[in-house]
Amino acid sequence: MKELQDFTKIYQKELNYHIKDDSYDRSKTSLLTNHMLLTTEVAEVAELLRELFVITEKKISDGMEEEEAFKLAQEHISQDLGKEISDCLAYLCKLSNFFNRNMEEDFYNKMEEVRVRMTK
């Protein structure tokens, strides 16, 4: 994850996609813009999941077995889903980099927090 975060930092700076940090106003605008862009990408993931179920239901209504219909629908959206998840990850890396967070460390800490909460 650290390599991914480092790559993203360089890549986004190179393309001028990084969150601007030269003033409060630019940071505020950049953070809000990136928040909107991230939520747009999350919505695109949701749209693909909706498409998954629409395709599955259509194939079932056409007489296909449920499991086969679902598998074919998964295959249909898989590549686009990977692209949208990658877009989400890029924005999450960008936010983490802006706040000097280590995503891998934060992830494992959060998973442990959930584990502790669920085992109480």
Rank of each mutant, 00 (worst) to 15 (best):
V42D: 03
R26M: 09
L15W: 04
A69Y: 03
K58H: 15
Y24M: 02
R115M: 00
T29E: 09
D25M: 00
K20G: 07
H35Y: 15
I60E: 05
K28V: 09
K71Y: 03
T40N: 11
E57W: 08
E3T: 14
T56Y: 02
F99Y: 14
L89A: 05
L92I: 11
A46S: 15
C88L: 02
D22F: 06
E68N: 12
Y17P: 02
D6T: 15
T40I: 12
C93W: 03
R101N: 07
F70W: 08
Y11G: 05
M118P: 10
L49T: 09
E112Q: 11
E66L: 13
E84Y: 03
E14H: 04
I10F: 07
Y17D: 10
N109D: 12
D80I: 02
E51L: 15
S30H: 02
E113Q: 15
A73G: 00
K13D: 00
V42Q: 08
F70D: 02
N34Y: 01
E44N: 03
E41D: 02
E105P: 01
E47W: 04
D21W: 03
V42K: 09
I19V: 02
A46P: 13
L89C: 06
M103G: 09
F98A: 04
K58M: 14
E47T: 02
F70L: 13
M111S: 11
L15K: 03
K71A: 09
I55M: 05
A90F: 02
H76T: 10
E67D: 10
K83C: 03
L95I: 12
V42C: 01
E14C: 06
F7G: 03
V116L: 12
E67A: 11
R50G: 15
R115W: 00
E112I: 15
E67C: 03
I19H: 05
T8C: 06
Q74T: 04
T56F: 00
E84P: 00
E75R: 08
E44R: 05
E84L: 05
D25H: 03
M64N: 11
T39F: 12
V54I: 13
N109G: 10
Y108R: 08
E57F: 11
L38I: 00
K71Q: 06
E65Q: 09
F7I: 08
V42G: 03
N102A: 08
Y24W: 11
T39M: 14
R117I: 07
I60T: 07
D21S: 12
E41S: 03
E105Y: 10
M36H: 09
Q5I: 07
K83N: 02
R101F: 09
A43W: 03
K9L: 10
K28C: 15
D80M: 14
M1N: 11
Q79H: 14
F107S: 04
C93G: 01
V54Q: 14
D106L: 06
E104L: 14
E112H: 13
A90E: 12
D22G: 01
E14V: 09
D6C: 12
K20S: 14
M103A: 08
K59H: 08
Y108C: 03
L95W: 07
K28I: 01
N34I: 06
S27R: 07
N102W: 05
S23D: 06
R50E: 10
E113Y: 14
I85Q: 10
E113F: 13
V45F: 05
E47V: 01
E105C: 00
Y11A: 07
K2P: 10
T29A: 09
K83Y: 04
F53P: 13
S23G: 06
T56P: 09
K120N: 15
